[in-house]
């Protein structure tokens, strides 16, 4: 039953080990990072600091889970940073205008995110413009629209908002709970539903998926809705912890989100990635950030470490792809 046992015949143990290491590079890095910081300062391994890591990772993590859907189809969504800003803002206005509670506001934010995603999907599927350009344009559009609504002033939410953000259920902070629910839901959708499996099929071979009867347009459009809705939720959850929304919120976050998803094993070429991976990717980045704080490294140097880790993970993936390509070369003669 082992998926590896029979498949690794005829290769030396060191080659098998290298394949394994390249395939699970992110996990190895994660392990190394935790061990390193744990030795540097044992306090880092205390439950509360680890809990803090997950809580802080939830923001990028939730959006990265949504981004994974898009990357799986071989697309990209650059507009998530602006959606994080605009969708919660719309929710804020709705809460103010209609006296909605925080849960209702959350629903409004997610719905607003879904609508923004549908705009991306419209241009990508219907007008056949490449995702990079569409989402680059909506990055500007969405943020511009939001600042037009606020006249680029800060937006203050009602105090209940902050109470929600800092609340906890059964001792688990709400952001972690939301993160967990989103991750679980995404995992189930991706791995257990026809829609999820068709996303993978589409990313592996779009033409093949079309031939096999998959409704490619619908699947392709849906992932942008998922991505934007997740970004909206991510923004809402973080804003709930802060209590206000300023005009620069979410700016440049699209890159953090993509980095987390890729670190979690999602490929920019589509077909590879998982919700679980996005969680790991986002958490790893946050672990490094916090670990470097514990280790007393200059604040400004932290991104360099992050960059280095992303680089190593992408490099490992590229090397793995190359090894696969070489091993797939056509063999004519029966090999011994």
């Amino acid at each position: 039953m082992s998926p590896l046992g029979a498949r690794t015949l005829g290769r030396s143990p060191s080659e098998v080990a290298l394949d394994l290491a390249l395939r699970h590079a992110t996990y190895l890095i994660f392990l190394a990072v935790i061990l390193y910081f744990g030795i540097q300062s044992p306090a880092f391994l205390a439950p509360e600091s680890l809990g803090n890591v997950v809580k802080q990772a939830s923001f990028i993590g939730i959006a990265a889970i949504g981004m994974t859907f898009v990357l799986l189809t071989g697309g990209i969504d650059l507009s998530v940073g602006s959606v994080m800003y605009l969708a919660p803002l719309i929710a804020g206005f709705a809460m103010e205008a209609f006296g909605l509670g925080v849960p209702a506001g959350l629903v409004v934010a997610v719905c607003a995110g879904a609508v923004l995603g549908a705009i991306n999907a419209l241009f990508i599927v219907r007008f056949d413009v490449i995702p990079f350009i569409v989402t680059l344009a909506t990055l500007f559009l969405f943020r511009g629209f939001g600042t037009w609504l606020t006249s680029s002033r800060q937006f203050d939410f009602a105090p209940e908002m902050r109470a929600f953000g800092l609340s906890s259920v059964l001792g688990i902070p709400t952001p972690i709970l939301v993160f967990a629910v989103v991750a679980l839901a995404a995992h189930v959708v991706l791995s257990r539903t026809p829609f999820g499996r068709q996303i993978y099929a589409l990313g592996n071979d779009a033409e093949g998926a079309r031939k096999a009867g998959v409704r490619v347009g619908v699947v392709k459009g849906s992932v942008y809705v998922v991505s934007s809705a997740s970004a909206a939720l991510a923004g809402f959850v973080l804003i709930a912890q802060i209590g206000r929304l300023d005009a620069a919120f979410g700016e440049g976050r699209e890159f953090d989100v993509i980095a987390a998803a890729v670190l979690g094993g999602a490929s920019l070429f589509g077909g590879v990635g998982s919700a679980w991976g996005a969680v790991i990717g986002a958490t790893l980045i946050q672990t490094v950030k916090l670990g470097l704080v514990f280790a007393g490294v200059n604040l400004y140097l932290q991104p360099i470490m992050q960059g280095l880790i992303i680089f190593v993970a992408v490099l490992a993936d590229s090397l793995r792809q190359r090894r696969i390509a070489i091993s797939r070369r056509r063999h004519i003669r029966p090999s011994a």
Binding site: Y200, A201, D205, A212, G213, V214, V272
Partner: peptide
């Protein structure tokens, strides 16, 4: 589809 399981490849269209 090389990234799907054997069973999923059989059932991808329904």
């Amino acid at each position: 589809f090389t990234n799907l399981s054997v069973a999923e490849n059989l059932y991808i269209d329904g």
